[in-house]
Design a binder for these strands. Structure first.
Lengths: 352, 352
DNA sequence: GCCCTGAATGGTAGCGCTACCAATACCGTC
DNA sequence: GACGGTATTGGTAGCGCTACCATTCAGGGC
């Protein structure tokens, strides 16, 4: 009689795929030894390992991740929650994540919160029910409920994109406020004096960039509210055109804009081209993120280079280290940013 | 003594989360009835359903998807394989997919093949081992191995992005060849006579667009190989600049370009701005996909509007219908495309 | 009254894997 | 040769859920 329950005379439910017992029988060992050989080869003697490898290949055995997850109450899954799929920023982050996870036995489970904290809560509940090996979430503005869920998830948790106090567990990001502050100061040093702000969506990171804009201008003569335009609408190049047109009509003496992101900056450039405003002499333009297109524009557009791919890549490496119990030297990483200064902020016409 | 194995005196392995048995005990029914009440409420009487709902809420019960998948040999997962995460085209497709799956109990399992057929094979093997409820793959150029895997996956399979003969199962897409043919004919009718082609990456869909370009020009005087530039390098705006510059230096009489995608078209526009070429009078420019930025450019750029979001949305609805056994009126859908004609192809200077 | 039918509920036995403990073999030490 | 340690392997008993079959009960036709 076989030991796998077939003796009952009922046909097996599965699609007839080979199981770990089939491999064990063929290799002449017990199932548990096969299990060990697959998960941690060092714990099995060379001879058996070789036999098992042959049996696995002969049968075309592929472990069932669901059975594994049930038995070990831990799925080889890393849950990732991002707020947007169309935002190029997160496309780069994801690319880094998928590159970093390649070759490991882990899977990324992706959730899209669409910038909604409630949706994020819901996704976290769903994810946690799968007992993931780790969770990665965007930003640091989780609801109290979501934060509690993260704290009780029983797995490593990593917050990405921002730096800030009081991490749930680990953190990889940078200060949007400081980055914005620095690029606005750059505009000032380039000679611009009436520097506006254009912002769309205004999610928490956008809010912090606006704060950085204010912090930069405060000691330099203060912020003129008439130079700040924001909208909750999602960002787009067209919106950048529209917002700059509005702003110019309301404040014709505007001589530079810091755009909340690169789409808006590109739109602002097109609006200048349409209305014949010289960039950078009549209007300086700076964006945020430094998407690839910024350097290719005419004139090339100044931006803040944010290490998006690297955030994605390092975050997955970090949680993998945490999962496998390796030492994590720094649990909170400020990954920094870099100004990408180009012609679009070359300075205004000297008014002498 | 309880009936859930605690009598053995060993502590339970799980994190102590309530199980379906806990809910059953509280509601005074058997576990199997709870299972039915959750999966198919109609099969349980109203009274019991109400009791069970209360018990579920009281305990905060969340079903374990792994246990469910193991017992039913079917995971509530839809596997999706796309070739790129940075390509905006797929970002829109994914957005549609995630919108369509919202509210269902299914999860999307995303794989990134990076345009590699081998990687696609590997991903498919991994996905199939999870016994997904459906599979969605990009394109129609799977390797024979991958195709066999799809055919034996034992679940609905949907190929997206293209239309073509011989689907594995279902299909939602459009003809890249025809779309390209049509836009090149548009350029001809606008008066352009030396129409070039700029292509990057040259994945199968790009190849078919190039074929469409050839098909359009063949009856109109033939294709001049000197006007075709392609590169296997990934597409970018900068690359569009470079490729147009090369092409112009090799063929100074070029009067229009059909760019394989919008990034390249945008780069081409910037190159014209840099070198002082009037668009559309000296050079007509057409792109492909009609990303949002195309309409906002200066001048606005002609493109082919491809229903990316809709492909994503409809594909997930279709496989959900297939999973739940609903009738699928059309298993192969040509979702079409639309020319978005704008100023950038307004016609050349009349040479009289 | 009988049988039949169908709807609602329950019992049993796994799904394929791993945690936990036990057993065995082998080695060196005193 | 007894002892204790280490390395390797196996046995048992689940993980939490659902497929499958059995049971119960109400209602209808004869």
């Amino acid at each position: 009689m076989s030991d796998s329950g077939q003796s009952v005379g009922r046909k097996r439910r599965g699609a007839g795929r080979p199981t770990i017992s089939d491999v064990a029988r063929l290799a002449g060992v017990s199932p548990i030894t096969v299990s060990r050989a697959l998960r941690d080869p060092q714990r099995v003697s060379q001879d058996l390992r070789a036999n098992i490898d042959v049996a696995v290949r002969t049968l075309g055995y592929v472990p069932d991740p669901n059975a594994r997850a049930l038995a070990s109450s831990r799925a080889d899954v890393i849950g990732v929650i991002i707020p947007s799929l169309t935002n190029n920023v997160f496309a780069d982050v994801l690319r880094g994540m998928y590159d970093a996870i390649n070759g490991s036995s882990y899977q990324i489970q992706l959730g899209n919160s669409r910038y909604s904290p409630i949706e994020e809560e819901r996704l976290l509940t769903t994810f946690v029910s799968q007992r993931p090996s780790a969770l990665i979430v965007s930003g640091i503005d989780q609801t109290p409920t979501a934060r509690a869920t993260l704290e009780n998830a029983g797995c490593p948790v990593l917050q990405i994109m921002e730096s800030g106090p009081d991490p749930v567990d680990m953190m990889v990001g940078f200060s949007h406020r400081k980055a914005a502050e620095e690029i606005v100061r750059h505009l000032w040093h380039a000679g611009y004096r009436r520097i506006g702000f254009i912002g769309a969506r205004m999610d928490p990171r956008s809010q912090r960039r606006l704060q950085g804009y204010r912090d930069a201008l405060e000691p330099l003569g203060g912020v003129d509210p008439a130079l700040v335009t924001t909208t909750p609408a999602p960002s787009s190049v067209s919106l950048g055109r529209d917002l700059l047109r509005d702003l110019m009509s309301r404040a014709p003496d505007l001589d530079a804009v810091f755009c909340n992101n690169d789409d808006l900056a590109m739109g602002a450039l097109f609006e200048c081209q349409r209305s014949g405003l010289d960039v950078p002499r009549r209007l300086g333009i700076a964006g945020f993120n430094d998407l690839e297109m910024m350097a290719a524009a005419h004139p090339p557009l100044t931006s803040v280079r944010t290490p998006r791919y690297e955030i994605g890549y390092r975050s997955v490496r970090m949680v993998l280290d945490a999962i496998t119990g390796r030492d994590i030297p720094e649990r909170v990483i400020d990954i920094g940013y870099e100004l990408a200064v180009r012609d679009s902020t070359g300075g205004p016409v000297l008014s002498q």
